[in-house]
Amino acid sequence: MAKLIMTVDDSASIRQMVGFTLQEAGYEVVEAEDGQKALDELDGKPVKMIITDLNMPVMDGIELIQRVREHPDYRTIPIVMLTTESQAEMKQRGKEAGATGWIVKPFKPEQLTSVIRKVLG
């Protein structure tokens, strides 16, 4: 069965693009537009990995990562954050929060799939 990956981003177009790329690569996708919605969406689903933006309204990516790392069912799943080229500080905060890896925007679909392969195998 196809693995389920969650993509969290307040930008609908990026969500769509990530979602499309993942589906092309044979994954199933669940989307959420901010951290809070992501936590709500998780809800027992067999999500194997989260790809999240950092800057988002309501609950940002950093807090989402922290909350997932405290979640009894999901605390060891890989979380990859989407950062922009020079957000060195954000990246560091993301790592401290427990992110597995990161992808720098803008990225190509192949870069995304290669990162997924790196963390999901």
Binding site: M49, P78, G98, R117, K118, V119, G121
Partner: peptide, 14 residues
Amino acid sequence: IFKYGTKIIPLLNE
């Protein structure tokens, strides 16, 4: 390392 969601086998496979 596992608490960061990192899996070792994919790294070795790469």
